[in-house]
Design a protein around this nucleic acid. Sequence first.
DNA 1: TTGTAAGCGTTATCAC
DNA 2: GTGATAACGCTTACAA
Lengths: 338, 338
Amino acid sequence: MTTIKDIAKTVGVSITTVSRALNGYSDVNEKTRNKIKQVAKDLHYSPNAVARSLVMNQTKTIGLLVSGLTRSGAKDNIVFDVLTGVNDYCGENDYDIVLFNTTTSKQKEKTYAQLCRERRVDGVIVQGIKKNDPYLIEIIENQIPCVLVDIPIEEDAVGYVTTDNINGILKAVDYLVSLGHQNIAMVNGHDQAFVSQERLKGYHAGLKKHQIPMREDWVVNGEFEEEAAEKVTQQLLTEDPSITALVCASDLMAFGAIHAAKKLGYEIPKDISVVGFDNIVLSSYVTPTLTTISQDTHKIGVEAAKLLIELLEKKDNRRSTLLPNELIVRETTAANRH
Amino acid sequence: MTTIKDIAKTVGVSITTVSRALNGYSDVNEKTRNKIKQVAKDLHYSPNAVARSLVMNQTKTIGLLVSGLTRSGAKDNIVFDVLTGVNDYCGENDYDIVLFNTTTSKQKEKTYAQLCRERRVDGVIVQGIKKNDPYLIEIIENQIPCVLVDIPIEEDAVGYVTTDNINGILKAVDYLVSLGHQNIAMVNGHDQAFVSQERLKGYHAGLKKHQIPMREDWVVNGEFEEEAAEKVTQQLLTEDPSITALVCASDLMAFGAIHAAKKLGYEIPKDISVVGFDNIVLSSYVTPTLTTISQDTHKIGVEAAKLLIELLEKKDNRRSTLLPNELIVRETTAANRH
DNA sequence: TTGTAAGCGTTATCAC
DNA sequence: GTGATAACGCTTACAA
């Protein structure tokens, strides 16, 4: 593999000159530069990023730490979408992405800091970890620049990007109320997710706004899983048949809820309205198509990468980005007929 | 950041000893080793993979070059699934993955070899490129170890993994024939995909096996896209209403085909049977659920990583892996009633 | 069992 | 404008 040494030898200059010529420094004769460039091309030279990283003490690489980088993540395409967003922005800005593997047994022993330091990534984007994940403490304690997805923490070296979860659910409640619904229950995720807290706040805010009394037992947790959501919804609906609408904290859970309702003999949306959250691909393919709060997951990725790179290059001192959500009305919601 | 130098200083030994102690060499006193290990821990030492890579001339990193690493890849979760498979196997074997960005304008200028050499990846897994992609020639010409997904090329340094496409379609045809279908048409992908060739072979083989005469005009190309498939299917079915079954080269195209059929007043599966290919998540969520040939895309990823690492470590001289496919019977196929 | 020293391919600091 | 030379953090002959 050709090195600047080889180029230096064939051109008859020092390696210093080659380095400077190739890196576009001004203090080098244009003729020598051209000769060097030509030889570099002839010899199929590629700069060795590893060597450069070593001396520059930066790798132009960011780590992507994803908790749900498993097969199951394929159902909602969220993880993938964020990844493509990160990839897009990084590509434009000459950063490479390395995937951190936290799922496999072997790597599980390594701490977050070890993972980062070993690969000498310049920064990290973290997605899908829970509030009680041990990594989270490490992230805050360490000085490694980091952007969290959906976890609102701001530190010197850490920021976050999330969507306006409160407002999202609020829009859903607004819409349901406008359809004449008053008995609106919520299928939330779990207590270890910040987004669940926020979405719950949105639910409360919505009820309050329309002066609908809150009922604690009308909020159930579906663990962000289709099956779990089905189960709790079935119970909820059995115990209280007066419920006419369901806001769910994810589309997958909405599917579970719908399934439960159908099993109980409900017709959708005639007997009960359901709105999801995420707007995953599935939601426009199922029958009936799902009314949902759309998150631009690709943009989450883009903004996360953007924020991180700004952090790295100290261009700005923003520490967070809040993206808007949008209500997508489809077929699982209808006027209340009770 | 702590280095072996720091450890050497505090323990009072040379850096050589530290290096050897930490890397588990036998020729080092157990007492010194323990002291060194302790100090390393105390000082929060992490080995610098960059420095190591430079001297070892290997990065323990493999590049993932994906053509469809874009938002659109979210519909079929294939790209993502393969990625998780690769990630799983690499994690177990201490390899990291770096994502090669080929979509963004900036990187597009770089050749395949440049991409690989610059990052000094040990090997590459390539997915989603077409037969006429300029990268392909480079891959063959270069000496960089590479495993291709769904492109059957074997060279000294390149191998591939794919599924048994011929047999997959054959199973579909077998099944349709067993349901009494004789007028079976095919919605294929496009000529630039090896899998399309194979699936076409499977279609031919299936017809031949059951002594059904081939009709060239009953094979149409849907470009692996839902909309395109819908269009060509509409035309096909309009021109020849005697067709009672459709084998499609992807689930997404099957959805397009179904849509076209419905528009023409067909009921599914009463009036026409449709079978897809891939078994993407969507196919079990749509109504009616899709009969399809299932590919274990996660396993494709695992096997690709496995094959590449074997190649890298010269453990074996296999150059390819063929995975079986499976027919998943769901609701879009029924007995022929014509 | 341990240490010395060379070298991996760069960039950066000087001096010329 | 250009060239020695040191440095980045590590591994690895070779020597002791």
